[in-house]
Design a protein around this nucleic acid. Structure first.
Length: 314
DNA sequence: AAAACGGGCAACCGCTCCCCG
DNA sequence: TCGGGGAGCGGTTGCCCGTTT
């Protein structure tokens, strides 16, 4: 690691960095047992460890503290909590982590970072120029007449009375959802008939989706009218639930929504025929409902999606 | 089989906050 | 009231490992 020792002075000032050894952990634990989780800087001044107080504290908080959920993936509920609280609090990871027993701010931060990267990559993938495969034309941002990020209401803000009392999580104003999934008839008219049917099926889904007055966020996977999102449709959630989804992932000004042909961003929930889909009479396999937003995010989920085809491909 | 790639995670850095003398 | 030091927090980096090509 860092820190070459050249003399007594240097040796005294030597600060070890990098991965912790088991002996160091043990030292640190002993210190905490004796003095509690405080006086971090004294650990080094006492010569117990060649680590800074900050480093010791971090190690304790992130790895050695009791009841940590180390190595445990975020559960669905935890993910929902993070998503909600991030929308409400911003990147106050420590605050968010305080709502999640066993999770550290680092955990939450890393989780969110991974999530952002994944969503960004998905969007980027869907925005890459048309290549080999020629499948359903995917509607892009500029195909959508009105596109706005969904609104969330925090408990402190005025809430519509229809919000379920038991739900502390954000819910999506349906009018916003409708805007997001609105696809111009133009697109359907450009599609092969089979694809048109497919798109209509998708729209049937969202017609049902929007048929409810308001959708409590945790209830989205199970629609009021008995329709249940299949996994692929449920996967919409991480997209539309993202409060700052547009701002963060689309490099365009909000005023440009819908008019920027240079940003052909497709939507993940329009998929070509042949893939597992939710037909009107299809049985819904609840077992497919993910216990986590992302655990079941198939790696190739959007691979079959192509960016908007060039006119010649239509 | 090996290189490239991506995700997850641990740890560091720099800044801010807060407490105490 | 102010300054210094410790603690806390958020951002960033780098490593490791599994997966894909």
């Amino acid at each position: 690691m860092s820190g070459k020792m050249h003399g007594k002075k240097e040796q005294e000032e030597y600060i070890r960095k990098g991965p912790w050894k088991a002996e160091e952990d043990e030292m640190l634990l002993n210190h905490v047992k004796k003095y509690g989780p405080r006086d971090w800087s004294s650990i080094r001044s006492k010569g117990l460890l060649q680590r800074t107080g900050k480093s010791c504290r971090l190690r304790w908080v992130n790895k050695l503290r009791p009841n940590l959920k180390n190595g445990c993936k975020f559960s669905l509920e935890e993910e929902r909590v993070v998503i909600e609280l991030q929308a409400q609090l911003g990147n106050r990871w420590a605050k968010i982590a305080s709502y999640l027993p066993g999770r550290t701010d680092n955990d939450v931060k890393n989780f969110w970072s991974s999530r952002q990267k994944r969503l960004a990559r998905i969007l980027q993938t869907s925005a890459t120029p048309k290549s080999q495969k020629n499948k359903t034309r995917v509607p892009s941002l500029h195909d959508v007449p009105i596109l706005q990020p969904p609104k969330f209401s925090s408990p402190s803000e005025g809430e519509p009375s229809s919000k379920p009392q038991s739900c502390s999580l954000p819910y999506i104003d349906n009018s916003e959802v409708i805007k997001m999934v609105s696809l111009p008839d133009l697109i359907k008219s450009e599609l092969p008939s089979s694809d048109t049917i497919h798109v209509e099926q998708e729209f049937t889904l969202f017609e049902n989706y929007k048929s409810t007055e308001q959708i409590a966020f945790p209830q989205i996977p199970e629609l009021q009218n008995g329709l249940t999102f299949s996994m692929e449709n449920q996967d919409l959630l991480p997209t539309i639930d993202e409060p700052c989804f547009i701002e963060e992932l689309c490099p365009l000004d909000a005023s440009e929504f819908g008019i920027g042909p240079q940003h052909p961003i497709g939507f993940p929930f329009f998929q070509p025929p042949g893939s597992c889909r939710l037909g009107t009479g299809d049985a819904i396999d609840n077992s497919k409902i993910s216990d986590s937003f992302f655990d079941d995010f198939p790696v190739d989920m959007f691979d079959h999606m192509d960016p908007p085809a060039s006119p010649s491909n239509l």
